[in-house]
Write a protein that binds this DNA or RNA. Structure first.
Lengths: 183, 183
DNA sequence: CACATATATATCGAATTGGCATATCGGAAT
DNA sequence: ATTCCGATATGCCAATTCGATATATATGTG
């Protein structure tokens, strides 16, 4: 799924400028998709060229003109057509889990610090999701609830299993004393 | 975290060629990181140029020479230095959740099909993780267990809340009859 | 009073993806 | 039998995306 399709999706929920599309991605989509200005603006230009969105320029004092985009009929058809394909695999990139995998290379105490911070971030994120869940469609509730369920599961897992990586520094020393077991 | 650092990490677990690095990412890292050949091979070339890895070429019949890389002392120091920075936010891209968000645009039955397939994929993935968990370090168990916990939570959530998006087609029609409530 | 944040668009180099090319072998399906 | 696919192995290339930066101003914060 490229940024052009993503823009069509956001615009199907209401007209918006490039800047507003970015904000809505950060609000509603933040736990499962994102895109930078560097991809959104070119995407909108090309969507307009292809006749999939229409643009109305609002002049503004002391700021660049605001370009408000809305879907054309072709754009709406294109969006619907995208969902004929089955969705591809989720792609996750977690620097945190890479760090955990190499936790034995980390300075003492650092792993605990990272986990504490991560738990705190998850808590804030769940709170933020819950505050938005009240007035929304069932589909939006479903997606927000999915995020909440996963962040809560992650938090519980971290609390219950952190000993596996936090005691790693000690275990590593023990392991060095019995190299004969190594594969 | 760029692909160069990722390659240093994989190589710290044992010498490997570009091809083998890719395979190990698909094995051990698949649920939280990945990289394509198009990024791994240039990364290795540059790591070698910067003296962070050393390369030994093995001639092979009927195949391109196999280039086996191993970490230099500088490479190992560089890897450790990377973990001085706190890990950045997880980045998730889920075409599935985008599809769910726009489930009211999907043909009838399609949402259920997507969810069934997703649950099946999760089950297979958990089974695959569990089969690898037996003989591994605590850090590897921690990372694999994290994946397992999240996929299990996702599966449960999908089973318990799928009605929110599967009945959407019907609800949408009801909603069309009471437009005055709309915002 | 300096600094960060929000509004708003846009460009640009660097990084990354995903498909293709190349070449061979073994196994499975037709 | 033969065709087709996947594994092995490196690498190129066009298209896509990221992240930083530029530009300009108003408002809130320490």
């Amino acid at each position: 799924m490229d940024v052009r399709t993503l823009c069509l999706g956001v615009l199907s929920l209401g007209d918006a400028s490039g800047y507003e599309i970015k904000k809505r991605l950060e609000d509603t989509f933040s736990h499962f998709y994102d895109a930078s200005f560097g991809s959104i603006y070119p995407a909108l230009t090309r969507l307009q060229k292809d006749g999939l969105v229409h643009c109305e320029t609002e002049a503004q004092a002391n700021r660049p003109d605001k370009k408000v985009y809305n879907l054309t009929v072709d754009g709406r058809l294109k969006l619907v057509a995208q969902f004929n394909n089955m969705p591809g695999r989720d792609r996750v990139r977690s620097e945190f889990l890479v760090a955990m995998l190499f936790s034995d290379l980390l300075p003492a105490g650092r792993v605990g610090e990272m986990i504490d911070r991560r738990i705190d971030e998850h808590r804030k994120f769940v709170a933020q999701l819950e505050s938005r869940e009240v007035r929304s469609t069932p589909a939006q509730q479903f997606v927000a609830g999915y995020g909440r369920a996963l962040y809560e599961a992650a938090t519980n897992y971290l609390q219950e299993n952190r000993y596996l990586v936090e005691s790693e520094a000690l275990l590593a020393q023990v392991d060095n004393d019995r190299v004969e077991v190594a594969d």
